[in-house]
Structures are given as structure tokens and as C-alpha cells.
Design a protein around this nucleic acid. Structure first.
Lengths: 215, 215
DNA sequence: TGTACATCAGTGAACGCGCGTTCACTGATGTAC
DNA sequence: TGTACATCAGTGAACGCGCGTTCACTGATGTAC
């Protein structure tokens, strides 16, 4: 798996391969150790089978490496949410919102350390890199806003709810709450996280939806 | 403010005072730097006006010091939530749940770094200290369960909601979502956090409450 | 077709840093006789 | 009432550690003449 020749020297043109190896190693390390702090340049280099300074041929510094790892994760998350929605294109906006929330949560629960860095980390730690707007422009959020707008247009929501952005933020915050709590406190004496997620989504749908009366 | 004599030696019996100073300094540092990592033994000692080794007269290691800081914060949070509820003892359970949620959120938003450590930190970082059950036995949560039970007994909730623990977890997760998102991403391009909180609480109440029909 | 050369991806050693923690100690304090 | 002594809360120096990063370098590769 080493991109090196027997002599230990890299061959010209193989820089991109090594770069990929570095990102892969950093990601694996992040998942394995469960902490951004443990993903050291030295550890990454070790895992790639290369010396630490060679990392700097590919990334200006550690922050950019970590960013690259997370950046890809953002994209992957957006892809997954979109893929999930593509499977039921003609469901009602409310059902699609629920599906998007579930896909989002599944991703976060399956990649807790990525989720931690993406959504639970210090904003100051990496200014202007994977901060704020990045989160919102990752595609998934705009989609939720669109779905909220569709739901409003279809008269599916309580009449007080007129701002699709606010509806999207409410849903995002609540689902994020379930995920982030599960990520931070995996051993909480509580019902299974899937059940909690279902319950939260039920309550949210009931809370934003127009009351159906007795049925 | 120094507990030391002119000679720089501590006087017998003043150990407790210094211990308090250490905790206060650690807490101030936590708030000032905004990161647990920056609360080093050296920095705390500096702030107290004492040398690093003397910290170890009062705490076995750093983890115990940080724990002490957070432990007090848990207690303070529970006090604040309880105090808030005491101001309107005869409100309906639903109103009280909303008030508890608001008090909880206000505390978290006012003490973001404490909140981060208490509810957003790594579970492994401090095993068995301020983890898991500690969160739930902090008093506030049991209270929310009680209120949920009262709401159920009073027939205020949707009939599907029979488990007060689950209701409490749903409410907690959703409110936590707003707080933790605001703590992690304070500069998010989004409506003001107070408005988001209000919106989430509105949706939650509408979502758990028995539909009132048209009014 | 052969050779000089620029390039490129690595190496190995070292830098300075701040950290948690340990060690042997000191000197003021209160107490027992 | 005076003095020896245990206690207690500090000090100052140092430990080993792992970190991000920099430096001067090497040697295989592909290319231009």
C-alpha cells in the first residue's frame, strides 16, 4: 500500500496519491482515536508510512489537513441526504422533511467524530475554514428551507409559521439536539437514540403541522 | 487578594481559602479563554498568584480540578431552573415545562464554556466524573419528568405520549439542540437565538399538546 | 541515442514550546510539654 | 511562661513528553538538447 519505491523515495507524479493517503489516514485516525487532538502530524505520517515533514509537501499546516477531511465529510453528508430524498421524490413535503432529518441524524450518528468537529467544535479553532456559513451552504440546509416553503405553500403547516427559514432552523436545531447529545453522551441512561429520534421527529411534525383534528 | 503572607508562605488553616481561589481562577480562566485546554495548571497557578506545584496540595490532578468547577456549575444550573419554576408555582405543567426549558437555555447561553464541557465534551475525557448520570441526576431532569407526568395526568398531552421519561428526553434534546448550536456556532447566519428558542418551544408545546382544535 | 539537469517527493535531525507532574525543600504556624 | 516539635502550605527546579514546524539534504525521475 505504500506509494514509495524500495528505496523509500517517492516517484514523480505520485504526489497526488500520497496526498490522498494522507487524507485517508487522517480520517481513519480521527475515527479511531475519536479526538481531533489525537490526530497529530506525526501520527498521520506514521500511518501513511512517511516522515512528518513530508506532510508539508501536501498541506501548508495541520489546520488545512483537518479542514480537508471535514470538507469532504460535509459534501458526503449533503450527498447522503440528497440521495435519501431522491428515493421518494413524490412524498409530501412533511414526509420529506422527516426523511431528511432521519438521513441527517443517521449520518451524524454513524460518523460521530466528524459530526463533533463539524457541528460541536469551537468556532475559534478554525476560523473561516469549516465554520458557520459552510454549514448552511452545504446543500442540505437550503433543501430543508425549500421543503419548508413547499409545506407552507401546500397549506400543511400551522398558519403562524410563515418563515421557511425559521421552520428549517427549528427542525435542524431539534434533530441536531438528538444527535449531538448522543455523540457527547453515548452512555446516557435513556431510551435508544433511534427511539428518541423518532419521538422528536414525531413531535416536530405534530408541532409544525396544521392540526388534523380528531381522526 | 492574595492569601499569602508577605513572606509568600501560606498560613495554617488558609488552605481552604486558597482552594476556593484556585477554583475561582480556573473558572474565570475557562470563561476567559473559552477552552478547557487553555486552563492549564500553570495558568491557574499564575492567576491565583501561586506556583504550579501548590495546586497539588488541593487537587490530586487537573481532571479533579476541572470536575470541581463543572460540578458546581451543574448545581448552579439546577438551582436556576428550580428558582425559575418557584416563581410561578401554579402555572400549568405545559407552561412550567416551557419555563424550565427557557431557564435551562438561558443558563447555557450565559455560560457557554461551562455548557460545552458539561454537555458537549468528550465522554472519554473524564470518565465517571461529570459524565452521563451526573447530567440526569442534577435535579433539573427529574423535575422535567415530573412535569411531563403531571401533564399526562392532567390530560394535556397527546394520548400517544404515555412515557414521561421519553417526553422529557424529547424536550431536553430539542432545547439542547438550540443551545449547543448557538454555543458551537455563535456566528451562524440565522435568526437571533432567542427567537429560535421561542420557535422551538412553541413547536414542542404544539407537538406534545393535545390538539385544541380551531379557536 | 546518450547525457546534463531541473524537478519533485521524500528523509533525518533538530528547534522551541507548553504541558502535567514530581521532587526535595523551607519557613511560618499552632501545639504539647 | 518558654521552648521543642509536628504540621501545613507553600517554593524552585527539574523530569519527560509530544507537539507543530523548519532546515538542509538526497536520490529517483522525467525531460531537453
Amino acid at each position: 500500500v505504500s506509494p514509495l519505491t524500495a528505496a523509500g523515495r517517492g516517484r514523480r507524479g505520485e504526489g497526488d496519491r500520497t496526498r490522498e493517503d494522507i487524507i485517508t489516514a487522517a480520517e481513519a485516525l480521527l475515527v479511531a482515536t475519536g479526538s481531533e487532538d489525537d490526530v497529530s502530524i506525526r501520527a498521520v505520517a506514521d500511518r501513511v508510512g512517511v516522515t512528518p515533514p513530508s506532510i508539508y509537501r501536501h498541506f501548508p499546516d495541520k489546520a488545512h489537513l483537518i479542514f480537508e477531511v471535514c470538507s469532504r465529510q460535509f459534501d458526503r453528508m449533503a450527498e447522503e441526504v440528497l440521495a435519501m430524498l431522491a428515493t421518494s421524490p413524490d412524498a409530501s413535503p412533511l414526509e420529506q422533511l422527516a426523511a431528511a432529518g432521519r438521513a441527517y441524524a443517521r449520518f451524524g450518528l454513524a460518523n460521530p467524530e466528524h459530526y463533533r468537529i463539524m457541528f460541536m467544535g469551537h468556532a475559534d479553532h478554525t476560523p473561516e475554514l469549516y465554520d458557520t456559513t459552510r454549514v448552511l451552504e452545504s446543500g442540505s440546509f437550503g433543501l430543508v428551507v425549500d421543503l419548508a416553503q413547499q409545506a407552507i405553500d401546500a397549506g400543511l403547516l400551522r398558519p403562524e409559521l410563515t418563515d421557511p427559514g425559521m421552520v428549517a432552523h427549528v427542525l435542524w436545531a431539534a434533530v441536531h439536539g438528538v444527535v449531538s447529545l448522543a455523540v457527547a453522551k453515548p452512555n446516557l441512561p435513556a431510551p435508544a437514540v433511534d427511539d428518541r429520534l423518532d419521538a422528536v421527529i414525531d413531535v416536530l411534525l405534530a408541532g409544525i403541522g396544521r392540526a388534523q383534528g380528531a381522526e
